[in-house]
Nucleic acid binder design. Structure first.
Lengths: 133, 133
DNA sequence: TGCATACTTGCACTATAGCGCTAGTAATAG
DNA sequence: CTATTACTAGCGCTATAGTGCAAGTATGCA
């Protein structure tokens, strides 16, 4: 990991998207780390879409990702102090329409399906899988 | 002022631009309110550009603007708690390259030219005025 | 009344962001 | 070895954001 020049606007750019904000909020509120298929089942968005947003968050320095077998786990980066402040801001945001709490509800339910603290079952919401050939 | 539905990503969108972040940082660090021509002389950007960015910040709910004669003063909105947290985040951001402190230095210098606590002199850096007609 | 000026805005252009689709890669299960 | 599947990436499309230029509005001064 090399940090050459930090451009602060990239951090805000990373959160300037509804889907990415939904991802970050789940991680901020629960303190969890999670894999793609758990996000798919929680946010009910196609996997290729979430995969790309996760990449953007990683490149912005907000997420670190670690591969475990077939799964890739994503967790929040908390090292520079301004990131902690940023997450405090995120968790203080209003939830107009209850969209975030719906995500959270699905996320918690999905976490119950883990075995040994890890996802073992893949995407459950069939219509959001990547329909491979 | 009517708030119908707050979309949190609009707030981050507002800060996802270098120029707008420079504006907000000046106001966060100094606690001042300021008019367009003072921003022009501090950021050394053309007035039409800054005027548009100020409008975006206003529409995002980060700035409130008040006309006083020929001048329009812009100040930070601090009411919802998450905005205070947001400004804490902004003030904790690194200043790679010293661009922000250069802005700040010009801004403080420019504030010294006020009379009676108000800007009375207009844009000083000639090349950044709007060349009308 | 006319001019200077602080500020805003319409227009055209360019760059980029987000998307769906689809194919591809890698790892595991049987 | 083969099939399944978690995840990624390329392609083309569309929408939008940021910009410079130039015109327009509004306020105050002489």
């Amino acid at each position: 990991m090399q940090i050459i020049t930090i451009q602060p606007e990239v951090i805000f750019q990373a959160l300037a998207d509804e889907t990415r904000l939904r991802i970050i909020r789940l991680l901020v509120v629960t303190g969890e780390e999670s894999c793609l298929c758990e996000f798919v089942d929680s946010l009910l968005e196609p996997s290729y879409k979430l995969s790309r947003h996760l990449k953007i968050l990683r490149q912005a320095g907000l997420l670190s990702s670690q591969k475990e077998g077939r799964w890739v786990y994503h967790r929040l980066v908390v090292k520079p102090p301004y990131l902690e402040l940023l997450y405090s801001t995120v968790s203080a945001l209003p939830d107009s329409g209850g969209a975030y709490s719906a995500d959270l509800q699905r996320f918690r339910k999905r976490l119950c399906l883990r075995k040994g603290g890890r996802c073992q079952i893949g995407i459950q919401s069939e219509e959001f899988k990547t329909k491979a050939g």
